[in-house]
């Protein structure tokens, strides 16, 4: 490891076209980026497209990557998040053939779902959060970024990040209240 970026050496080797480094970077980052895109978009195919696009940009960036300004992982997250926002914006602008899956707002005893459905409910509830709350929750809870890194990535203060997180979690808790029994 060099400096504060645990990926620095690996990225340098990727920049030189080292096949082993390319495979290692993909093994290290692809699952994380795929998760991020899936949590943001709640669509597996779109998440794969985003992950692929992030790596296309990473391959271009690696040879000229200058360590120090930001961690490579943070840069990857920013690229992925921008791509997700592009897709979310397009969704809003284009009428959809099928409406997105909505969170069922009405908790009732007969709506208790099996474990597999619980996961779908959680994903749908995440998808129903306002974008910035969802971004904060995804970055901090699922991607496990620290407060300073996540706030910097989102371009907000640490206090604003904390507020977005708390509101996001409260909304999730309310949407999924019927599952807590």
């Amino acid at each position: 490891m060099t400096g504060n970026d645990p990926d620095q050496d690996l990225v340098a080797r990727v920049g030189r076209g080292d096949p082993a480094a390319i495979q290692a970077l993909v093994a290290r980052k692809l699952p994380r980026l795929l998760q991020l895109a899936h949590r943001m978009l709640n669509d597996a195919a779109e998440a794969e497209d985003v992950a692929q696009e992030v790596f296309l940009r990473a391959w271009k960036q690696a040879p000229t990557w200058v360590p120090g300004a930001a961690r490579f992982d943070t840069w990857l997250h920013r690229v992925a998040m921008n791509l997700c926002y592009d897709r979310l914006r397009r969704r809003r602008e284009q009428p959809m053939a099928e409406p997105p899956e909505q969170v069922d707002p009405g908790p009732a005893p007969d709506r208790r779902l099996l474990a597999g459905d619980t996961g779908s409910r959680v994903n749908a509830a995440l998808g129903a959060l306002p974008d910035r709350q969802r971004e904060a929750v995804v970055l901090c809870h699922y991607q496990e970024l620290g407060n300073i890194e996540a706030a910097g990535l989102m371009g907000v203060s640490v206090e604003a990040l904390e507020s977005l997180l708390a509101r996001g979690r409260r909304a999730l808790r309310a949407a999924l209240a019927d599952l807590r029994e």
Binding site: P31, H38, A44, E48, L56, G119, L172, R173
Partner: peptide, 24 residues
């Protein structure tokens, strides 16, 4: 509750496509 959201696994096909797009 939040952790009950299923994780999407990266398929081998996706991994191969990503690696195939690398300059090397």
């Amino acid at each position: 509750l939040m952790d009950a959201a299923p994780a999407l696994s990266a398929s081998i096909a996706l991994r191969d496509r990503v690696i195939a797009a690398a300059p090397a």
